[in-house]
Amino acid sequence: MKFIISEKYNKQEKRKTIYAAIFVLALIAGFIFMLTNSDVLSNKIIAAIGIFFLAKHLPQAYRSFKNKDTSYPDVEILEPQQKIEISHKGSVVSIALSDIESLRIQSIKGNVKSLLLTTKSFSNLRFEGYENLSEMAEFFKKYTPAEKIKKATWYHR
């Protein structure tokens, strides 16, 4: 079974990035206004520091928006080989299904929103926004000890 990120989730994350960038730009504009219209030196210093600390986040927001399509790995569960393969930009990481220690499933209104998988080799793997996430959860339940499966009532980010 192969799992890829859903297009809806990808668009939602891009939208969040755009809103955050607009908010930062609005704050920078406010600081510029404060810098140019204030006569008090302390206000000018606060505005300059605010501009400096906020402006450094804009290139990161641009890169995040630009690379959002390729920033999520593909997950493939190979049941005959008893492993999970996570591939991203040509790199593949394999995890044995026997290495699964615990599984936390977060559901909202009956829909699975995210999974937190704890393994022996890679401490925590979080899966969110993938198509057929409920099928992935059911599959992981088969390979996780029953006492180590939890349904999260609080978001586990």
Rank of each mutant, 00 (worst) to 15 (best):
I22S: 12
A55D: 03
K56F: 02
K11A: 12
T36Y: 06
N43W: 08
I49E: 01
R15H: 15
K14D: 00
P59E: 04
N10G: 11
Q60M: 13
I18H: 07
D69M: 07
Q81M: 15
L54G: 05
S42A: 06
V40F: 00
A29K: 02
K68T: 07
D69P: 02
I46R: 03
L41W: 11
F53H: 10
I22Q: 10
I84K: 01
Q60L: 12
A48K: 09
P59Q: 08
I84C: 00
S38Q: 07
A55C: 09
D39Q: 13
F33Q: 03
T36Q: 07
I51V: 12
K8V: 10
F53T: 14
K83I: 15
D74R: 06
L35E: 04
K14Y: 02
D39G: 14
A29N: 02
L27A: 12
S42L: 07
A26L: 10
A20Y: 04
T70V: 07
P59R: 08
G50S: 07
A55M: 05
K44H: 09
Q82H: 15
K8T: 11
I49Y: 03
Q81I: 15
F53P: 06
E79C: 01
D74H: 08
G30Q: 00
K66V: 10
R63M: 01
A55Y: 00
K83E: 15
I32P: 00
P73W: 02
A26Q: 07
F23N: 11
V75T: 07
S6T: 08
F31C: 06
R63H: 11
L41E: 11
V75R: 06
I77M: 10
E13P: 05
I18M: 09
F31L: 05
Y19D: 12
N43T: 12
Y19T: 12
S6H: 06
V75K: 03
Y72P: 07
F33R: 05
F23I: 12
E79I: 09
K83M: 13
L25I: 09
Q12T: 15
A26N: 04
S71E: 08
A29Y: 01
S42N: 00
E76K: 13
K44V: 11
N10W: 00
N67V: 05
L58M: 12
L54Y: 01
V40K: 03
K68S: 12
I49C: 05
N67Y: 09
Y9L: 13
T36I: 11
K66C: 05
A55Q: 05
A61I: 01
K56Y: 00
E79L: 08
L25S: 09
F31S: 02
T70I: 12
Q12C: 12
A21N: 06
A55G: 08
Q82N: 15
E7W: 02
K14A: 11
D74E: 13
V40G: 00
F33Y: 08
A47D: 08
A47E: 05
K56P: 01
V40R: 04
P73L: 08
S71R: 04
I51D: 08
G50N: 03
Y19L: 15
A29M: 01
M34N: 13
K68H: 11
M34G: 13
K8L: 10
I32K: 01
K83N: 14
K83W: 11
A61S: 10
M34C: 13
I45V: 14
E76N: 09
T36M: 10
S64I: 05
L35A: 03
S38K: 02
M34T: 13
H57G: 15
V24M: 04
A48Q: 06
E7F: 00
